[in-house]
Write a protein that binds this DNA or RNA. Sequence first.
DNA 1: AACCTGACGAAGA
DNA 2: TTCTTCGCCAGGT
Length: 114
Amino acid sequence: MPSEFTQDVIKIIQNIPVGKVLTYGKIAKLAGNPRAARQVSWLLHSSTKKYNLPWHRVINSKGKIALKSEDGKDYQKILLEKEGIKFVDNNKVDLKKYLWDIDSIVNIKGNFNL
DNA sequence: AACCTGACGAAGA
DNA sequence: TTCTTCGCCAGGT
């Protein structure tokens, strides 16, 4: 039985719009624990299939892809480009432009049953 | 209960 | 700007 925090993280990720991204830290904060970014990463790598998550829309605070292997990075980059996201210097995205500004949405928790 | 893990992140150097 | 170091968290063993 996943903790409430984990359940919220899952829901938030599932609701990231096409063409938008969120960072590990932002997700953790939205789920109620600003310092649990590492747990978000753990979840992605262990439960992506189980919860059918759009894992490619989650990147790090620098706007870069967090996967380790080069193959993985290329794959994620392709998935994001297919959604219209442009890369700067061939390895990072403009967060000002593509970060899902969930904070500006009123009553977000109600809208997504968090 | 103890210990280990990771696709993190902020702060220093 | 890149590389360390260190703190954090929930699951898994």
